[in-house]
Design a protein around this nucleic acid. Structure first.
Lengths: 205, 205
DNA sequence: TGTACATCAGTGAACGCGCGTTCACTGATGTAC
DNA sequence: TGTACATCAGTGAACGCGCGTTCACTGATGTAC
């Protein structure tokens, strides 16, 4: 990594921790640079203003999650050729990944941005929207493959069903953090898996 | 309403709108008192400090939601004696209530508090935890009634299932706000209803 | 290979503004006798 | 019924601190000839 890139990443790492714990406005540049061992001037060398940091955090978060989803679905595909089975496997792998995080998943930057959107300019809000729509497209594609073989056993809108993946994760994180049960998120994801199983598994008889 | 109570409620109303849109730290007392037509001194007559406002907002939000849930489940119970049917009706009523909100549901104070919990003292975090555990207890009671008659068709933990109600609503709000589709939350709630239907409806044959 | 210059990745001091909180005070309403 | 006093529901000015941002500067590394 180039000389400056390493510092930039360190700034974003400490900023992300703080933003997830206190929100964006309450996270001061002062404390970020202290934790990252640089000066304020150094911060403004990497980011023109505080809003640019928010945008960078969202975009990095999304690309990290995208890689994670790509990885999980690819591994699942290797384990089964059936689209329903491989999706169920992927969701289980995802739950296991989240369950294995030592102090629980740290939370989702997108969620914090949604509840602080009047702080940000249109750029940041757009990045947030694009992120969630990207997840919808991704999961919708997996669902389309399933539906082509297994007709759903209840009337559902497939985009809504795709959104449910993001929704259950986001909601699971909130419940998990509120009650202080780090693995609650993973268990919520397993319930979503149970739903997909019931919805698409053909009726025996 | 007593003379001071009306002012206190007005402070909380304007504060809640601002907190849901910008987060707690970014919501200044200055702007709250401007919107509520009082002076800063007036604010500190009603709340010893800003943390007390947060706690009051959470507690009021929870009691409002509790009343709403009580109402919805009571109305559903009148429409069916069967615990499964009445729960499915209650969830549908809930979705309709949220769908009918003009600009979408404004969001959940509990969610904002979870993602800003380092701002608050233990009091506020405890109020938040109590809120979510209260919802768990409430929905768990409804589920227990169902399970007594209809065995679940997949292996699920009933507390997790109870948490799923809060989770799907919280997650639905985030997705809804992120993509700018006010009725997305209601549609997510209907998917949860679909899950409960599939999970508990006895197999035909 | 050496030298001159440009760029990179910061430092460190200064700025003005808005924030949460305090406090002495006030005018309207309620209560005791 | 009138008066004295207490309480309620605020006002308004002041405070000190920390914030985001700017800017002139610097030392280390890279590049051209």
């Amino acid at each position: 990594m180039a000389r400056g890139e390493e510092t930039r990443a360190r700034i974003m790492d400490v900023a992300q921790d703080a933003v997830l714990a206190k929100g964006f406005d309450a996270t001061s540049i002062e404390e970020i640079v202290a934790a990252a061992n640089i000066t304020k001037g150094g911060f403004f060398y990497h980011f023109p203003d505080k809003n640019a940091l928010a945008k960078a955090l969202i975009e990095r978060h999304v690309s990290v999650e995208d890689e994670l989803f790509d990885d999980v679905f690819a591994r699942a595909r290797e384990l089964s050729d059936d689209p329903l089975q491989s999706t169920l496997i992927a969701i289980k792998l995802l739950a296991e990944l989240i369950a294995d995080m030592p102090n629980g998943h740290p939370g989702c930057i997108v969620a914090t941005a949604v509840y602080q959107d009047r702080l940000f300019n249109a750029d940041v809000r757009e990045a947030n929207k694009v992120a969630v729509l990207g997840w919808r497209r991704r999961f919708r594609a997996a669902i389309d493959e399933i539906v082509a073989i297994y007709p759903p056993r209840d009337e559902v809108d497939l985009d809504d069903l795709a959104d449910m993946v993001s929704g259950v994760i986001e909601g699971g994180l909130i419940v998990s953090k509120a009650v202080g049960e780090p693995d609650a998120t993973a268990r919520q994801i397993m319930l979503l898996r149970s739903y997909l199983k019931l919805l698409f598994t053909p009726q025996r008889s």
